[in-house]
């Protein structure tokens, strides 16, 4: 499932297993809200604001399946700015990094956080790649980086359903069509089948395959 819209507090509360987890979330959100009001005090390199400790502990307190939602909610509530997001990403576990990536569309206007997408797209961790190709990528990745992100999804098995705004960005992209066609030829030459998603995105480009006999 692609999560594009931000989670609301109500959604998340409904998903939590028990009242203990809901109480924990309530306190965590209150701490995050206080941090949003307070004048920014940069934490020392080695300690964190209390809501950031909650950010780290979300998996064990609310369940791994809810961790993305809880963490994203905390980031929104704290109105985390670019510096905070960058720090939490760099100091985060893979799960925490994923939450930062998911929160970008609602917290960062403009392309200032693209360095975090670049970092995630350099990994081979499909959980990160998948979180990096959301709406923020659709809005701010340049053409070259976006095409490589699409190709990376095909390479690592991330479903292209996870790529936000695929239709709009692929439409009329002759260079993407060329890259897809070349990739298909490489697969065919190796005697391997072609991912179904490749045909789909190639169709979306609206470009004719250069070597239709190989597709």
């Amino acid at each position: 499932m692609t999560q594009t819209a931000p989670w609301t507090r109500k959604d998340v509360e409904a998903r939590l297993a028990d009242d203990m987890a809901r109480a924990w979330l309530g306190e965590a959100l209150a701490e995050a809200a206080r941090a949003a009001q307070a004048p920014p005090t940069p934490p020392s390199p080695y300690t964190s604001h209390t809501w950031e400790l909650r950010f780290a502990a979300a998996g064990r307190q609310c369940g791994q399946d809810n961790a993305d939602a809880v963490r994203t909610l905390l980031l929104t509530q704290a109105r985390a700015g670019l510096d905070t997001l960058t720090r939490l990403y760099r100091q985060g576990s893979a799960a925490e990094r994923r939450a930062v990536l998911r929160a970008l569309p609602s917290l960062v206007e403009g392309p200032h956080a693209v360095h975090l997408l670049d970092d995630a797209l350099r990994t081979n961790d499909t959980r990160l790649v998948s979180a990096a190709v959301g709406p923020y990528a659709a809005a701010h990745l340049d053409a070259h980086a976006w095409r490589h992100a699409v190709l990376k999804c095909l390479f690592t098995g991330v479903p292209l359903d996870h790529v936000a705004d695929l239709d709009r960005r692929a439409r009329g992209d002759g260079e993407l069509a060329r890259m897809l066609t070349d990739y298909a030829a490489e697969r065919t030459a190796a005697g391997r089948d072609i991912p179904r998603d490749l045909h789909r995105v190639l169709t979306l480009t609206g470009e004719k395959p250069q070597r239709p006999q190989e597709l």
Binding site: Q64, R127, S130, T156, V158, P195
Partner: peptide, 20 residues
């Protein structure tokens, strides 16, 4: 956290998607 799903095997020779 011990509830890791069973592996599906390699998907078309790519690394499989897990937790994506």
């Amino acid at each position: 956290q011990l509830d890791i799903p069973e592996p599906e095997g390699l998907h078309e020779g790519n690394s499989i998607l897990r937790g994506g």
